[in-house]
């Protein structure tokens, strides 16, 4: 069995496991009938969609399987960042001293999933919204702009999140 066949099999199995987990979450029962329907459905849907779920060009398992403890820690830290930037946002709304501007910068994360999670986290915290994501180039609407220099703006907007995300994915 050559490498690409093996890689397809691995992607198929991971897609089926993810679909089965969602099925168990929604059905919430472990009766044999519902379990068999879930397994058959997961296998059929995974055979149709595993190419879209995990792209062929992803380098290895490490690029999309997160480290679970680091991921849990990251979501907790994200909630803390949410409250911190909400507080600054509230003061800005009440005082009216803002400086909205569009900045461009690049990210150092390598896998597609990690970049998607980074732009999602940037949008989740009030004060920054990702407008566009091309490969590693992010366009961000920043509400408290202090500089338009790409590297400095990138450090201020995403530096802390990227540092944590590099522990979760490659």
């Amino acid at each position: 069995m050559d490498t690409s066949r093996l890689w397809s099999l691995i992607r198929f199995i991971i897609t089926a496991i993810a679909l089965l987990a969602v099925w168990l979450l929604f059905s919430g029962s472990l009766e044999p009938f519902s379990l068999i329907i879930g397994i058959v459905g997961a296998l059929v849907i995974a055979s149709l969609t595993y190419n879209e779920f995990i792209a062929q060009h992803d380098a290895s398992l490490r690029s999309f399987l997160p480290r679970p403890f680091a991921l849990a820690a990251f979501s907790f830290i994200l909630v803390l960042y949410l409250y911190q930037s909400s507080w600054f946002m509230l003061l800005a709304v009440l005082s009216g001293r803002v400086n909205p501007r569009i900045v461009h910068f690049r990210t150092r994360l390598r896998s597609d999933l990690a970049r998607m999670v980074l732009s999602n986290s940037i949008t989740f915290t009030p004060g920054t919204i990702t407008l566009d994501l091309n490969d590693d180039h992010l366009t961000v609407h920043w509400f408290f702009c202090t500089t338009s220099h790409a590297r400095a703006a990138g450090d201020a907007v995403k530096g802390r999140m990227e540092k944590h995300l590099r522990k979760v994915w490659l």
Partner: peptide
């Protein structure tokens, strides 16, 4: 009314 913007040029 701008907050803390230091650069001179308008366009990045």
């Amino acid at each position: 009314r701008r907050s803390g913007y230091t650069d001179r040029q308008d366009e990045p």
